[in-house]
Nucleic acid binder design. Structure first.
Length: 417
RNA sequence: GCGGGCGUCGCCAAGUGGUUAAGGCAGCGGCUUGUGGCGCCGCCAUUCGGGGGUUCGAGUCCCCUCGCUCGCCCCA
């Protein structure tokens, strides 16, 4: 085939699917508005170092999934693989944080060079929340609640909130040492992937899907035991807060998350109906990131929600057929066709959705197209109507007889319909 | 990066080595030159993702390649 195609993993969203996306976006916007969260938009392209430093060199995202290239100035640029690093960078760059805590949301395409599969594309879309400058456990609860309520309001069912704590950076460092030592001692019993991660990303080993490794891990030192009293108390507060809001959750001690910047609360909202890529929304606390990217030490929590996966869940229900226009204008004759364009504009200015037949076709054909457009009414202008500056209103769905009307009468009739 | 499945018209789809590649939907034209939804008639793939090979002969067999898809990995 000589014809051009979209790049692998880059998906077109066709007109029949955009209404559902628009509905999700509108609902999300409304939830953010009600939660006093403001939108921020950042570039799709950033210097590579932002992600290398922010997400972590050892992560899969940075190590093998980034769209990175040299621009004409020989700078290494990367198409953003996630949103948080960019938002934090922008907040630092523009001094947002010196104006107090920031409640921000963002949305848009992200890029990860992976093998596509169900619920996974190379260009995909996220909506995300970032609460910058909030340290309290209550902000963790609030962030999660915003995601939970949004999903519930959209009518997604069968979701599970999985919750874990990664502890403070100190807890994590201490635990990491214990874990590495233990993994080292059992190296030969681990699967190859896990062996490779012992030093680069030991916590990820805990989440290995390998059955043998998983069985072995039952003996490993647990993160929970390494937590300081403060971290434990903090985690208890988060759980109590969720319980107070009647948001059900499941503790998952193996939930680690792939990005380096997380600490304390980590969570995922999953659905069993998504196939292998079950996470709809994932996030957590990242108290160290702002500082790591050159800002003042600032606690923060956030999450990102995968639009494609969410839409996948939503479209498992019945999809409403796209609405047709309010009016379809049919015309024949030179004068009439000129008037049809004027009439269409007149009605559009009055707020109606109007489709005008390209004209030229046989009259019968035009009515056929009018019918298929889904419009409830057709406005007919022929030579006779054009001379008199009238239109014939035809009821395409009901039994009402044709009416000969002036343009203003037409608008009134349609407004009443 | 590694496995499995698949690739015939815009969509669905028959066809399993033998002359001209069914059919349905959509589209276009007509029956009906100012009136649609139903019906009827006609048109709509020199070609089976692409390239090689086997054969007298290939959409049908073999090889390579590209793409789609599901899974691993990872994550939204």
């Amino acid at each position: 085939m000589a014809s051009l195609q979209s790049l692998r993993g880059m998906v077109d969203l066709l007109p029949e699917h955009t209404p559902l996306w628009q509905q999700v976006e509108a609902t999300a916007r409304d939830h953010f508005r009600r939660a006093a969260v403001r939108e921020i938009r950042t570039p799709l392209l950033e210097v590579t170092e932002l992600f290398a430093r922010g997400i972590g060199e050892a992560t899969d995202v940075v190590g093998k999934e980034m769209y990175t290239f040299l621009d004409r100035g020989e700078r290494s640029c990367t198409l953003r693989p996630e949103g948080t690093a960019s938002v934090v960078r922008a907040a630092i760059q523009h001094g947002l944080l010196s104006q107090g805590p920031q409640r921000l949301w963002y949305g848009g395409p992200m890029f990860r060079y992976e093998r596509p599969q169900a619920g996974r594309q190379r260009q995909f879309h996220q909506i995300g929340l970032e609460l910058l400058g909030f340290a309290d456990a209550r902000s963790d609860v609030e962030a999660i609640a915003i995601a939970w309520d949004l999903l519930a309001d959209l009518g997604v069912e069968g979701l599970a909130l999985e919750l874990n704590t990664l502890g403070s950076p100190d807890d994590r460092a201490r635990y990491r040492e214990q874990l590495v030592a233990w993994l080292e001692a059992h190296r030969d019993q681990l699967d190859p992937d896990s062996q490779a991660r012992i030093h680069t990303n030991p916590l990820r080993v805990l989440d290995s899907k390998h059955p043998d490794t998983q069985a072995l891990l039952a003996e490993a030192p647990s993160l929970a035991d390494a937590l300081s009293a403060e971290s434990q108390e903090r985690f208890a507060q988060v759980q109590a807060g969720l319980t107070a809001l009647a948001i059900p959750f499941v503790r998952n001690p193996r939930l680690v998350r792939g990005l380096d910047y997380y600490s304390h609360t980590a969570f995922e909202i999953t659905s069993s109906q998504l196939g292998a890529q079950a996470t709809v929304c994932g996030g957590g606390r990242y108290d160290g990131l702002v500082q790591q990217l050159g800002g003042a030490a600032t606690p923060a929590i956030g999450w990102a929600l995968g639009m494609e996966r969410l839409v996948l869940l939503l479209s498992q229900g019945a999809v409403a057929p796209p609405p047709g226009p309010d009016l379809y204008v049919v015309s024949r004759g030179t004068l009439a066709e000129a008037q049809a364009l004027l009439l269409a504009r007149h009605c559009r200015r009055a707020g109606l959705a109007v489709e005008r037949d390209a004209g030229g076709a046989a009259f019968a054909k035009q009515f056929k197209r009018a019918d298929r457009s889904g419009a409830p009414f057709a406005a007919v202008i022929g030579d006779a109507e054009a001379e008199a500056e009238m239109v014939l209103l035809k009821d395409l769905r009901g039994e009402r007889p044709d009416e000969r009307l002036t343009w203003e009468q037409l608008l009134q009739r349609l407004a009443a319909a």
